[in-house]
Simulated assay, not measured.
Amino acid sequence: MSMRYKIPQSVLVVIYTPVLDVLLIRRADATDFWQSVTGSKDALDEPFHETAVREVREETGIDCATGTPLQQGLLDWQLENVYDIYPRWQHRYAPGVTRNTEHLFGLMVPAGTPVCLSPREHTAYQWLPYRQAALTCFSPSNAEAILMLPRLATSKVQT
């Protein structure tokens, strides 16, 4: 069986409520790592929007696909981060791939939106006020995106 390497193009989706409480999920493979929804494209030609919808559904059970009530809550923030892939996950990428491009989205959901984690990927979740969420997540780019939430949540055109 040959290894299928991850594509070094991913999404970060900050899920939040109207009062800017942010959903953080704890990784199953690194229990001290809290984060927003993240995930790589399944194919090079997969649009980032499709990746975001798929990853949100896979990781949280929240459906924001076209035709759903939450469709309008998914905002493409038109921002990208490029960062070095963490050494602990480097083996998931093809030899020589050391950097990832991450496209940012926000998803506003009503308070009390049910969360159903994929136990293979995540073991717990919590809703935190955005500043506390930024302090809790392990990734600096994730924390930065969360801290931009008050501006980004209201300034971008919906996709």
Rank of each mutant, 00 (worst) to 15 (best):
A133C: 13
F138N: 13
T136V: 14
R151P: 00
S139D: 09
H122C: 03
Q132W: 01
Y130W: 14
P150V: 03
P150N: 10
N142E: 10
L149E: 02
T136D: 10
P150C: 03
C137A: 06
P129A: 13
E144T: 13
P129D: 11
L147D: 00
A133V: 11
P129H: 08
A134T: 04
F138I: 10
H122L: 02
P140N: 10
P129G: 09
P129S: 12
Y125W: 15
N142P: 02
A143G: 14
A145W: 00
T123D: 09
T123K: 04
T123Q: 07
P150W: 03
R151T: 11
A145P: 03
R151W: 12
P140C: 05
S141E: 08
S141R: 14
E144G: 04
L147H: 02
P129R: 08
I146H: 02
F138R: 07
I146D: 11
H122N: 12
M148D: 09
P140T: 14
R131E: 09
P140H: 07
L128V: 05
C137G: 08
Y125G: 01
L147I: 06
A124R: 13
P150G: 03
N142G: 13
P150L: 08
S139V: 02
Q132V: 08
C137E: 13
A145F: 00
Q132P: 00
N142C: 15
P150I: 01
A145K: 00
L149H: 01
F138H: 14
W127K: 08
F138P: 00
C137Y: 05
A124P: 03
C137L: 05
L149A: 01
T123R: 11
L128P: 01
R151N: 12
C137W: 01
W127V: 06
M148N: 13
A145C: 06
A134Q: 10
A145Q: 08
R151H: 12
P150D: 10
W127G: 07
M148H: 10
L128G: 02
L149N: 03
L128N: 04
Q126M: 05
H122W: 09
W127L: 12
Q126F: 01
T123M: 13
L128H: 04
T136Y: 07
A145V: 01
W127T: 05
A133I: 09
N142Y: 01
S141M: 04
C137S: 05
Y130P: 03
S139M: 04
P140E: 14
L135W: 11
T136Q: 14
P129Q: 12
W127F: 08
A134R: 07
A143N: 11
E144K: 07
I146G: 11
L149T: 07
P129L: 03
H122Q: 07
W127D: 12
Y125D: 01
N142F: 05
I146P: 10
P129K: 05
I146Q: 04
